[in-house]
Write a protein that binds this DNA or RNA. Structure first.
Length: 406
DNA sequence: TCTGGGGTCCTAGGACCC
DNA sequence: TCTGGGGTCCTAGGACCC
């Protein structure tokens, strides 16, 4: 039996929440940004999109396109709460849901839609419930798999509903540009164009040998996608994370070593703290450096034991830095912890006593910080810095380690 | 398009081993 | 000792997503 997948996608999520809560913003072009000057737009209201304002755009460009645009600094906590309520609404219809991102949920209603009067009725009930209880609109797409459900919601935006059944996939895909598909970005689009393929219909008909020659193992998936097929079950339980990282574009480019190391210490603490909170340890540390000219590179170091200790992460990050000749001033720094294992794995057997002491100390610091707010207890050099609220990652999830809003 | 921040997955090339 | 082939792990980079 064909599955029925629903995609619930909030319309201009962050912007809609702000307009809901502040009548002065309703009906106006607004854009949600992070703090600071070097931020970009994470969401713009539909009124702003008319002017060409888009996600990822700088505030300067947005201002040029729409001089009367209103910028609002994002309120992560608020969006988090709305997302939790959205999750709770979806769970009324089926336990088989995947929170894909902060504003997008997939539901597998194959076995449960009859309880809600059929698929279309269920979808419309969700739309109404979201509007009544959350005060904002969403778009609902339906299809035989995630690929089609997501496409349907994209095509129906905003405040819409669309069901692409298995029998209509071929006709929809015949003239649909390949870029509309989830997983085909501008690079793949360009490569396909060079091969004379611009529509999904053409992609589905393209010889497999040609696609695998050009794209390797991905070629097979591309052809399947061109035919509207995507084998990917819903991830009901949030998957174990593979890495935990933080990065920051600095307010100003820096080049002094002590400025760089001070930033690395702050990043180490963020990474270590989040890892400790969720009981993860890693044995690979990656340093990302972006120069003022935007050239970006990464360098990593493998550890012999797992760690989530701030001081240790910091020391390895500095060790990596020591091996790099910094030629230009630095725009962005990032630290990521990967090759993760949970606390309690056999790696703990190799912990030495002073490592245990450090872990206990770090835990004590975390406890205080949890109680009184981040940075209550911290390293001295961290305290010399003020930091505004960051931009919430739209890939955020309400539970688990991807919740970076700590 | 002068370009944030959180991730995942894939690939190519080299080291190393048998 | 001028030199095979397969497997695995590691590193760096890139495409893609929201």
């Amino acid at each position: 039996m064909a599955r029925i997948i629903v995609c619930v996608d909030m319309d201009a999520f962050f912007a809609s929440v702000e307009q809901r809560d502040n009548p002065a913003l309703r009906g106006k072009p607004i854009a949600i940004t992070g703090a600071g000057e070097r931020t970009v737009i994470t969401t713009s209201s539909y009124e702003a999109r008319v002017y060409g304002v888009k996600t990822g755009m700088t505030i300067y460009k947005a201002k040029r396109l729409c001089p009367h645009i209103i910028f609002v600094t994002g309120d992560n906590r608020k969006y988090t709460q709305v997302c939790r309520r959205l999750e709770e609404i979806c769970l009324r219809f089926t336990p088989d849901i995947e929170i894909y991102s902060i504003d997008e949920v997939f539901l597998d209603i194959t076995g449960s839609h009859h309880l809600s009067g059929g698929p279309e009725n269920l979808a419309r009930t969700i739309k109404d419930t979201v509007k009544n209880e959350l005060g904002i609109t969403c778009t609902v797409g339906m299809g035989p798999n995630i690929l089609i459900a997501k496409l349907a919601s994209d095509l129906a935006k905003p405040d819409g509903f669309k069901w692409i059944g298995e029998d209509t996939v071929a006709s929809v895909f015949e003239t649909l540009p390949v870029k509309k598909l989830w997983g085909i970005g501008s690079h793949t689009e360009e490569k396909l164009r060079a091969m004379g393929i611009t529509t999904c219909g053409a992609l589905g008909r393209a010889p497999l040998s040609l696609l695998t020659k050009k794209f390797g193992i991905i070629g097979e998936r591309l052809k399947a996608m061109g035919n509207g097929k995507l084998e990917r079950p819903l991830e009901i339980a949030p998957p174990e994370p593979k890495s935990i990282g933080h990065s920051i574009t600095l307010p100003k480019d820096i080049w002094k070593l002590e400025e760089i190391t001070s930033c690395l210490l702050r990043l180490s603490e963020k990474v270590g703290r989040r890892a400790r909170r969720y009981g993860h340890k890693g044995r690979k540390i990656t340093l990302t450096v972006r120069y003022a000219d935007f050239k970006t590179f990464t360098k990593q170091i493998a550890l012999s034991v797992h760690t989530n200790d701030t001081g240790e992460i910091y020391r390895y990050a500095v060790a990596i830095l020591d091996g790099i000749h910094l030629r230009k001033s630095v725009r962005l720094l990032g630290i990521s912890l990967s090759c993760l294992g949970k606390d309690g794995d056999q790696m703990l057997l190799f912990q030495e006593t002073d490592r245990e002491k450090k872990a206990a100390l770090a835990k004590a610091v975390d406890t205080v910080n949890d109680k009184f707010g981040e940075h209550t207890i911290t390293f001295a050099s961290i305290m010399t810095r003020e930091e505004g609220p960051g931009v919430i990652s739209p890939a955020w999830r309400p539970s688990g380690v991807r919740n970076s809003d700590v």
